[in-house]
Computed example of a mutant assay.
Amino acid sequence: MTGILAVDGLHKRFGDVIALRDMTFDVRPGEIFGFVGSNGAGKSTTMRIILGVLAADSGEVRLGDKPIDLVTRRKIGYMPEERGLYPKMKVGEQLQFLARLHGLSAAGALASARHWTDRLGVAARFDDNVGDLSLGNQQRVQLAAALIHDPTVLVLDEPFSGLDPVAVDVMSEVLQEKAGEGIPVVFSSHQLDLVQRLCDRVGIVARGEMRAIGAVDDLRARGGVTLEVTGPPTDRRWADGLPGVLTADYGPTTALRVDPAVVDDQQVLAAALTVGPIHRFTTSTPSLTDLFREVVTA
C-alpha cells in the first residue's frame, strides 16, 4: 500500500498574481479526495506542482514520508486538464509507448493497453488514430494513459469533462476500484453532484487558498440544517428564542436554519403547534453546491 499524498504549505506566484497561498491538504490511502473551486482558483497549478511540471516558490509535496522526486513521479497516474494525446498516433500504439516510458516490458505494455481500452469501452478503437475519436472517447483513452502503468497515486484534473452519463459511470467505477486497492485518488471537477456522490473528503479552494476541507457530510452540516414548517400563521414569530435556531424566515412556509448539534426538532414542532396546525414538517441539509457558493463568495 502506498503512503499519504501530502501537499504542505505550497506558495506560488506568477508575477503580481498569487496563484497559491499556503495550499495544504493530504489524500490518504484508499481515499477519493475532491478538489473543487472556481476557474483560476489554483487547482491545476497545485496538480502541476505535485507532478513536477511546475516548481513551487515554497512548500513541499510528499508521498509517505519522502518528498516526491523523479522516481516517485513515475508511480503517479496523471490526467492533465489540457489533454496531451498525440492525435495522429493510434490508440494502442500510444498507450504502449506511454507504458514503456514508465518501465513496462513490451508484453506488459500490450497487455495493459488491451486491458484498459477494454475496461474503458474503447477496445474497438485500438487501431484508430486518437484524432479520429470523439471527444468523449479521447477522454477515455486519456484516463487509460493515466492508468496504463498501474500507478500508486492518481491525480486527475477534470476527468469527467465532456463524458456522457455511461462513460461517467464507468470512470466512477474505475476510481472507486483504484481507491479500493488502497490508492490515494485526487480529482478536480465542476460537477459537484458527482463530487458529493463519489468523494470521501472534499477541499474547496478559492483565490489560491484552501477555504474548507473535510468529509462531505460534515461540510454540508456545518452550515446548519434547514427545517421547513408549513401551516403556522405568518404573523407569529413562534420560533424566536428556541435553542439551536440560527435564523428564521417566516412565511407560508417558515424556513429555519438550525444547529443540528443543539436543536431538538420535536421542540420546534411543539412550538409551531402552539400557534396553529402543521401541514408539513421537513428537514434538509445544504448540498455541496450550496456550500460551494457560500464558501467561494464569502
Rank of each mutant, 00 (worst) to 15 (best):
E209F: 02
E209Q: 14
E209G: 03
E209S: 08
E209T: 12
E209M: 07
M210G: 02
M210H: 01
R211E: 02
A212M: 12
A212H: 11
A212Q: 14
A212S: 12
A212E: 13
A212L: 12
I213K: 09
I213C: 13
I213E: 13
I213L: 14
G214D: 06
G214K: 05
G214C: 08
G214H: 07
G214R: 05
A215K: 15
A215H: 15
V216A: 00
V216T: 06
V216P: 00
D218P: 05
D218R: 11
D218S: 14
D218L: 10
L219Q: 03
L219S: 00
L219K: 02
L219Y: 02
R220S: 07
A221Y: 03
A221D: 06
A221P: 05
A221S: 15
A221V: 02
R222H: 08
R222A: 05
R222N: 01
G223C: 13
G223L: 15
G223V: 15
G223N: 11
G224C: 09
G224A: 08
G224T: 06
G224H: 08
V225Q: 04
V225R: 03
V225W: 11
V225A: 05
T226K: 01
L227I: 14
L227V: 14
L227H: 00
E228L: 12
E228Y: 00
E228W: 02
E228S: 14
E228N: 07
E228C: 04
V229P: 13
T230F: 02
T230A: 02
T230L: 01
T230N: 01
T230V: 04
G231T: 12
G231H: 10
G231A: 00
P232I: 09
P232H: 11
P232K: 12
P233F: 01
P233N: 12
T234F: 02
T234I: 13
R236H: 10
R236W: 05
R236I: 15
R236D: 09
R237A: 14
R237W: 08
W238T: 14
W238D: 09
W238F: 11
W238A: 12
A239V: 13
A239W: 08
A239Y: 08
D240R: 07
D240W: 05
G241T: 04
G241S: 06
L242K: 01
L242S: 05
L242F: 13
L242R: 03
L242P: 06
